[in-house]
């Protein structure tokens, strides 16, 4: 399966908004390298979810939203990170919630706005907003005319299909 940085789609308002979650687990190998113990600087290990992968999580959330709005007919690719502000490091055992909204969309692409919240399952702590990520997506076949891409939609492959099915999202 292709790398997936969201675990479940919680809700989808077609063409408008998608909410997805990602559970951060100490079993994920990348956390062991981000950041490992540093003896030279006497720093203890500090496993946190990398901000770059939170941008990818938002890109997948917003990408599914935009793809769904085109009935998955377009090859929706991330073209620009217009804004990315992330102000906290999610640690294992917490949940990241991505809320993506379509801001503008036309025949060649879309822009989205996104909010990242941090949730603390099984505690009374309220969810808090820890970031904002705004993105631009291009529809590959509309923007690189003359270049040949495979007929099938390789962007929304098996991984995304499984995610949508296990999240109970109906096909557009």
């Amino acid at each position: 399966m292709r790398w997936m940085w969201i675990d479940r789609v919680l809700s989808l308002e077609p063409g408008k908004r998608l909410v997805a979650v990602k559970n951060v687990s100490l079993a994920e190998e990348h956390l062991h390298d981000h950041f490992p113990k540093d003896d030279a600087r006497a720093l203890a290990a500090c496993p946190v979810m990398p901000a770059s992968l939170m941008i990818e999580g938002m890109a997948q959330s917003a990408g599914v939203l935009v793809g769904h709005a085109t009935k998955f007919q377009e090859k929706v690719v991330l073209a620009k990170v217009s804004r990315a502000e992330i102000e906290a490091d999610p640690t294992p055992g917490r949940t990241i919630r991505y809320t993506a909204e379509i801001e503008r969309m036309d025949a060649t692409g879309a822009s989205t706005k996104g909010v990242i919240d941090l949730l603390e399952p099984f505690t009374d702590a309220p969810a808090r907003t820890i970031g904002r990520v705004d993105l631009m997506f291009a529809f590959l076949d509309r923007n690189l005319a003359g270049l040949d891409f495979p007929e099938h939609n390789f962007v929304f492959g098996e991984g995304f299909q499984t995610l949508l099915r296990t999240s109970g999202v109906a096909e557009p």
């Binding site: 073209a79 620009k80 217009s82 801001e103 503008r104 036309d106 060649t108 692409g109 822009s111 631009m136 291009a138 923007n143």
Partner: peptide, 10 residues
């Protein structure tokens, strides 16, 4: 760059 033209239009 190319995608910026779409961004500017939006």
């Amino acid at each position: 760059e190319s995608i910026d033209y779409l961004d500017i239009s939006f």
